[in-house]
Design a binder for these strands. Structure first.
Lengths: 329, 329
DNA sequence: TTGAAAGCGCTAACAG
DNA sequence: CTGTTAGCGCTTTCAA
């Protein structure tokens, strides 16, 4: 569409194209009067610089890549909103790519993005191999990890201390006098969930209690059935910590249908503080995670990295908190 | 990073850069033997074509723009997944932009995307003015509307017949013998919700019943309070249709806390068939919307439009269905 | 079947 | 402060 090029503007304003380029990129270097003439011409013609040509000439695209496993989990969609808002603010465009949690895809996508000349990338991907981390860390275009981090801290990252959060939640459950505390986790393999499990185990170990891990199926509907079956065939635990609010609510619903009273016979804590927690009955006690902020802070960090500003803190841990509602005593 | 250019490949393969370009874009026009030599060189050097340079030279970017009001509503995040999957399949990259429902922003974003040389755009935006629609429709880069449509059908669109869905749901409620049927809507202005309201009103009008519209606040927490207040100060309706599952569940929870029995004293139907509907107690009857498919189908339609293939049907209505659970008799 | 050459629309030295 | 001049890395005629 935009058939109007920088040449047209230059002609109308009666200057060289270099001057037009200057008022666009370094307006202070142009005499006010000329600048105005150029601006007027731009307006008159409805000129919009061609981002691609600009990218080619300047070797900077003002594009960033965003790699996520999926959009349709609240924990990631809110983060995307955070990324998008800050990107917008700094006038970056964001390339979205969803990998469905397949790692080789993530790495491949990353390479494609680099080839597409993004200036930086935000990546949410589990279990990157050492080689992969090495490659990301050594590339000239900066990559920031979302929610997860590599253990050696080679890559910038914005995350939550999931281990600590789970540890503290479990500890609370222990303090409330519970002995048989279950951990309800997902069968799919998330690094995040592994950290949560570690925190859970640490708290139990300190108290000399036995862990009890309950896996569940990826498919939502199957999980409900699985939970029902669980309560039909097993002694119910005294308390439970779940990897996500939705999981916690499903577990709770199954328990209640089995005649168990929450929180009297069974205390439950979720993870994330989503709407699920408010909408369940009883309302779910949960760990509040600043999801939006993870995205926003990561994007902000990335802008600094891209501008090669001095960044003191390259691995940022955002604070979690607890929201005590009606599923805990 | 990819410092390797097409020249390097040409040199190593001992051909001209034109030939390398050909094996990339029209492999059949190159003698198999040469082709293999080039391919080998590409492999050896780890060459990846620079998407930006390619875009500039070919005037096609293989990028599409995706404009949404937010990511963190299930109805849009699932759609995004649909778009992303199909885009991936056709090797398009997607530029994501969230507008927070502000229309002037959406139009502006659209222009920026066009300037960024996208080959097409998918847009979810309410209440576009006639001028805006005109502009989108007349541009050389195709735009497909998501979920909403312009009334004259000038723009391609993929959507649900929300009016009909609401009409049918309301009719079911009427057939069940309810007289006082409420419509629970959001105070923010969505074209979609307006259509739902129209369907609701049509069904009531046909039955000679009076409509009863209940607005609610945008903020989730406030809504719960508002609903509680509603039940404290007003006669409860016999039945209700809500614009979203989450709204339906909140309304139901408030009702139940007020001592109303669902579905005996109050029948409720939601919209969307999200996890909320399964996780509520009782489980919510709702209208199933193929959210993922809206995105997927729209993206597929867009690829055709971009290739200038013949498209017979430019406004596609996807089917809805009903899921009767425990909040209806 | 291949190569030479002319751009795509812009930025960025370098002069002036 | 402004203009001239090279490219950025690739596609695409046009000839050979």
């Amino acid at each position: 569409m935009s058939k109007v090029t920088i040449y047209d503007v230059a002609r109308v304003a009666d200057v060289s194209l270099a001057t037009v380029s200057r008022v666009l990129n370094n307006p202070e270097k142009v005499k006010p009067k000329t600048r105005e003439r150029v601006l007027a011409a731009i307006n008159e013609l409805g000129y919009r610089p061609n981002a691609i040509a600009r990218g080619l000439a300047s070797r900077r695209s003002t594009n960033v890549g965003l790699i996520v496993p999926t959009c349709s989990r609240a924990s990631v969609s809110e983060m995307i909103d955070g990324v998008a808002d800050i990107a917008d603010k700094y006038r970056y465009s964001v390339f979205l790519n969803v990998t469905h949690n397949e790692n080789d895809i993530a790495t491949n996508v990353w390479q494609n993005m680099i080839a597409s000349q993004v200036d930086g990338v935000l990546m949410m991907a589990d279990k990157l191999s050492d080689d992969e981390i090495e490659r990301l860390a050594n590339d000239t275009v900066p990559t920031v990890l979302l929610s997860v981090k590599d253990l050696d801290g080679r890559l910038p990252a914005v995350l939550i201390d999931y281990e600590l959060a789970a540890y503290e939640a479990t500890k609370k459950l222990i303090e409330n006098g519970n002995k048989d505390i279950a951990f309800i986790t997902s069968s799919s393999y998330y690094a995040m969930n592994e950290l949560k499990e570690q925190g859970y185990r640490r708290a139990l170990a300190e108290a000399g209690l036995e862990p009890r891990i309950l896996g569940l199926y990826n498919k939502f509907e199957n999980s409900l059935e699985a939970f029902k079956e669980f309560f039909a065939n097993n002694a119910a635990p005294d308390a439970a910590l779940a990897v996500r609010d939705s999981v916690a609510v499903m577990f709770m619903n199954a328990a209640i249908e089995h005649g168990i009273s929450v929180p009297n016979d069974l205390e439950i804590i979720g993870f994330q503080n989503t709407k699920y927690a408010i909408m369940s009955r009883p309302q779910l006690s949960t760990i509040n995670i600043p999801t939006y902020d993870i995205g926003a802070v990561a994007m902000r960090l990335l802008t600094k990295l891209m501008k090669e500003e001095e960044v003191t803190e390259t691995q940022i841990t955002l604070p979690h908190s607890f929201v005590w509602r009606s599923t805990t005593k």
